[in-house]
Design a protein around this nucleic acid. Structure first.
Length: 696
DNA sequence: ACGGCTCTTACG
DNA sequence: TCGTAAGAG
């Protein structure tokens, strides 16, 4: 749902740049003979010639549309060239487009804050650059203006006939213009340059909108395509929105827009002006109501975020109708393909961008026949993400099984969980999210762990969560290995190592526990992470040697848990506790819990655990005031292997009492599961538009 | 029982 | 927090 943001400045210079039929351009660059030809990119789908996902402007003239099938397109445009999307592992492979998108983003980010909005779109905040230009090199002083910028469209200028360029040129260089208009004019110059650079360096054309906010820039970029740009002066806003069909506004293309039409009789954005903010809030809630009110006036304070890379990676496939997957093994097979692609992209992201994803999520669409609640949705499930293709596969399958069990219900799962009776999977996807840049430098790594400990010493686990998520925790938990060195050289090997290597030797070298359970607030962001010295540091692969059994162990447990509710509860407790135990271990409460120590591996040969009391200064040791905690944490991070299971009765109350209060509370809460906090249903509001139309 | 396949954001 | 839903392209 859209949310209103206060407008911080009304003279920002914001651009939206949109690649023209991007996939087609990528294919045309690859195969130059397609240039200028009516062309479309089709997605592999033998049914009716595949679905079009991008259509060249030449083909559009013939009436070819996206969301036509290949066969239809041929009918209206027999000359059309249909190019197939690359296929890998039995599914569409969009990597070439992603990479091309990155090329463009790199160029477009040169002049100001840049937000990658999708594979082929970015927002730019050019305020600073435009202000600077206005000071140093104002358009009114320019002697010549480039072809590209004089081709701009300026809303509100009547561009009738041949003198359009003259008028635009005049508007751009007017010395008596308002400051806002001058800033936009500067923006137009900058964007024209950027677009030219994109063309020269990538061969791609794009269109752009230049305005005072994202909403208007986006609107404008679509007004003159392809390969053109459009400016929205302040004075043109009213007219622009007054005419605009409500559905054309971003965020109003779906149910909300429909609801506005039906419930309020609104046809254009301008029609919204009649309604008071309160009225709109009454209908659509405070946030959306305010957003609508502001939107009608062309007000949008949404900022351009600095983001050049995606926040998540996903890989999915649909299995429509008769192709639905009906057995667990077939699901496993496809899951495996999807996980391979995902893993590959994660490795790539790691190498290229030094980022690590922390959460793995599985989504599925399913149907089941002959059941009361056959409309139930397949629940999505997530767990900590462990690097390594086969680990991802393993975990994804576990997530799937957990989801399936929940979807089918205990009874049906037991009866038919494994055979094809009554259920089918029509869509599967795995995705990786919570992608965080690896802080570089020993100090920042130390800081990283330290901060996490400082800011969130409490293990954030509610009993509710435990029960819910228990079976979903990672079967094998990694421990943290921080050798104190991190260099490119040291990171490369395990990045590029082979599958076997990866599986036997390298797990993800990051603290999933620490960041996930101890301290989400203080994850290193641009401010806190120190990008200082490229000095020697290592993220060693966290060894693993307790893995093999764990996957099976978990599977067993799930199976066991099916036998009785009691079994289920027990399992949950164990899983939750193992999570807590990991924390305790890193807190150096070795005797608190009885753990099954796995054999040591070569990585843990260094200083022994007992050193932890004394300062174990490592090379490049933190050696700052707070080093004691750091060092201790690190030594544990380095040496301790979290237990997979332990005996709950072994918890020593005395030791427990020594723990920080918050931890104690968490443990107590776990020992005596508390009732859920009663969540109050939000004041009814009128959530009408969320309901299917017929229910209204 | 779908156009496929991604991706982001907001909410409870 | 996780899981869901809407929305965009």
């Amino acid at each position: 749902m859209p949310v209103s943001r206060p407008e911080l400045s009304d003279s920002r210079v914001i651009a939206h740049v949109d690649m023209d039929c991007f996939y087609v351009q990528v294919e045309q660059r690859k195969q130059q003979s397609l240039r200028g030809q009516p062309t479309a990119v089709v997605q592999y789908n033998s049914w009716q010639g595949g679905g079009l996902i991008a259509v060249s402007y030449e083909a559009r003239k013939f009436g070819v549309k996206r969301s036509m099938r290949g066969d239809e397109a041929k009918k209206v445009c027999p000359e059309i060239h249909l190019v197939q999307v690359p296929v890998a592992r039995g599914k569409a492979d969009l990597n070439s487009y992603r990479n091309a998108g990155s090329e463009v983003v790199t160029i477009l980010s040169r002049r100001g804050r840049c937000e990658r909005a999708s594979i082929d779109e970015v927002y730019l905040d050019l305020t600073i650059a435009a202000e600077a230009m206005l000071v140093d090199n104002p358009p009114e002083c320019l002697e010549t203006i480039s072809e590209e910028v004089v081709k701009s469209h300026v809303l509100g200028l009547e561009e009738d006939g041949s003198n359009a360029r003259e008028k635009v040129g005049h508007w751009l260089t007017r010395s008596d213009a308002s400051r806002r208009d001058k800033l936009l004019a500067c923006g137009a110059f900058i964007v024209a340059e950027l677009r030219l650079q994109v063309l020269e360096e990538t061969e791609f054309t794009c269109s752009a909108g230049i305005a005072h906010n994202k909403m208007l820039a986006k609107l404008a970029s679509g007004m003159n395509k392809p390969a053109q740009q459009t400016v929205v002066p302040f004075s043109s806003i009213c007219k622009l929105l007054g005419m605009l069909p409500i559905k054309k506004m971003k965020q109003l293309g779906g149910k909300l827009g429909t609801s506005l039409q039906i419930d309020l009789g609104v046809k254009t954005v301008g029609d919204l002006l009649q309604f008071s903010e309160e009225k709109l809030q009454e209908y659509y809630g405070v946030n959306t109501g305010s957003w609508l009110w502001n939107t009608a006036r062309g007000i949008s304070g949404e900022e351009v975020k600095e983001r050049l890379l995606p926040n998540s990676h996903g890989s999915g496939k649909t299995f429509p109708g008769p192709r639905a997957l009906k057995t667990v093994p077939s699901v496993e097979k496809w899951l495996s393909e999807l996980c391979e692609e995902l893993s590959e992209r994660l490795q790539f992201d790691l190498e290229q961008n030094k980022r690590i994803a922390h959460t793995l999520t599985l989504h599925a669409h399913a149907y089941k026949s002959n059941d009361i609640d056959s409309f139930k949705k397949f629940p999505s499930k997530s767990c900590p993400l462990r690097y390594g293709t086969s680990k991802i596969k393993e975990d994804a399958l576990i997530l799937f099984q957990a989801g399936l069990r929940e979807y089918l219900g205990l009874y049906n799962f037991k009866i038919s969980g494994n055979q094809n009776s009554g259920w089918g999977i029509t869509g599967l996807s795995v995705s990786a999210s919570k992608i965080i840049a690896i802080p570089s430098g020993t100090r920042s790594i130390m800081n990283y762990f330290h901060n996490q400990q400082e800011t969130c010493p409490q293990v954030k686990l509610s009993s509710e969560k435990l029960i819910q998520d228990a079976p979903l925790l990672s079967p094998s938990e990694n421990c943290i290995e921080n050798g104190g060195h991190m260099t490119l050289q040291s990171i490369e090997p395990w990045i590029s190592c082979s599958e076997e290597d990866e599986e036997t030797k390298h797990s993800l070298p990051l603290d999933r526990q620490l960041d996930k359970e101890m301290c989400k607030e203080k994850l290193p962001d641009k401010e806190t992470s120190i990008c200082s010295s490229p000095d020697a540091e290592v993220y060693r692969g966290w060894e693993k040697d307790q893995t093999e059994s764990n996957g099976d162990y978990l599977t067993e447990k799930i199976r066991d848990s099916l036998e009785s509710e009691e079994g289920k509860r027990k399992l949950n407790k164990e899983k939750g506790m193992s999570t807590i135990s990991r924390y305790f271990q890193s807190q150096n409460s070795g005797d608190l819990l009885k753990v099954e120590h796995a054999s040591t591996s070569k990585l843990s040969e260094s200083p022994s655990l007992s050193d932890h009391q004394s300062e174990p200064p490592q090379e490049n040791s933190p050696a700052r005031g707070e080093s004691s905690v750091d060092a201790r944490l690190c030594s544990h991070i380095k040496l301790k292997r979290p237990a997979w299971s332990y005996d709950i009765d072994e918890i020593d109350q005395d030791v427990l009492n020594e723990l920080p209060k918050q931890i104690q509370e968490e443990v107590q809460a776990w020992l005596r599961p508390q009732k859920r906090p009663h969540t109050v249903k939000r004041d009814s509001g009128i959530a009408r538009y969320f309901l299917p139309a017929k229910n209204k």
